[in-house]
Amino acid sequence: MTEQASTLYAKLLGETAPISWQELQPFFARGALLWVESTQDLIVAAQAVAENDQDKVAAWLEAGLLSKLGDARAEDLLARDPQLWAVVVAPWVLVQERAEAPASH
């Protein structure tokens, strides 16, 4: 990772925050949400979008690891209201469901 890429990664990481589905609904209505599968690093995906890395983004879209958030997923998120993470890479908001933390005993 170059120093410039490392700086962008750190900047995006600092801008990533938990968010509720209710707060994201206006962005969904505008078609501005990109869903990042939980197997992917949200920040790496955001960095690829920010750097316009068309090869990476196209490969993730093709593999279904990155996708425009559709109606079925929106309905699921509305019903479940899970904890989500989001980061803005204008004009997009990249969203990922936060992995469940292991239960402590």
Rank of each mutant, 00 (worst) to 15 (best):
M1N: 05
M1H: 12
T2W: 00
Q4S: 14
A5H: 11
A5M: 12
A5T: 13
A5Q: 14
S6A: 15
S6V: 05
T7M: 06
T7L: 11
L8V: 07
L8Y: 01
L8Q: 07
Y9H: 08
Y9L: 10
Y9P: 07
L12S: 09
L12K: 00
L13P: 09
G14F: 05
E15G: 15
E15Y: 15
A17W: 06
P18K: 01
I19F: 07
I19Q: 01
S20I: 00
W21T: 03
W21D: 09
E23R: 04
L24F: 05
Q25Y: 03
Q25A: 03
F27D: 10
F28D: 04
F28V: 05
F28P: 05
A29V: 02
R30I: 01
R30D: 12
G31T: 11
A32H: 09
A32Y: 09
L34M: 12
L34S: 12
W35V: 08
W35T: 13
V36A: 14
V36E: 08
E37G: 13
S38A: 15
S38Q: 09
T39A: 04
T39C: 02
D41P: 11
A45T: 12
Q47A: 15
V49N: 11
V49M: 06
A50F: 08
E51H: 08
Q54A: 12
Q54G: 09
D55R: 00
V57Q: 12
V57M: 12
A58V: 03
A58Y: 01
A59L: 11
W60P: 13
W60G: 15
L61Q: 13
L61H: 09
E62W: 00
E62G: 03
A63H: 00
L65T: 06
L65C: 10
S67I: 05
S67N: 11
K68D: 14
K68A: 15
L69K: 10
L69T: 14
L69W: 06
G70E: 14
D71I: 11
A72K: 13
A72L: 13
R73K: 15
R73A: 15
A74C: 15
E75K: 02
D76E: 14
D76F: 10
D76R: 09
A79V: 13
R80K: 10
R80F: 03
P82K: 01
P82E: 02
Q83S: 02
Q83V: 11
Q83N: 07
A86K: 02
A86V: 06
V87A: 14
V89P: 03
V89R: 02
V89H: 06
P91M: 13
W92L: 03
W92F: 12
W92S: 07
V93W: 10
L94N: 05
L94R: 04
L94Q: 07
V95Q: 03
V95C: 04
Q96W: 09
Q96N: 13
E97I: 15
E97L: 13
E97R: 14
R98H: 11
R98A: 14
A99N: 04
E100W: 10
E100R: 12
A101L: 03
P102R: 00
P102N: 01
A103E: 14
A103F: 10
A103L: 15
H105E: 11
H105C: 05
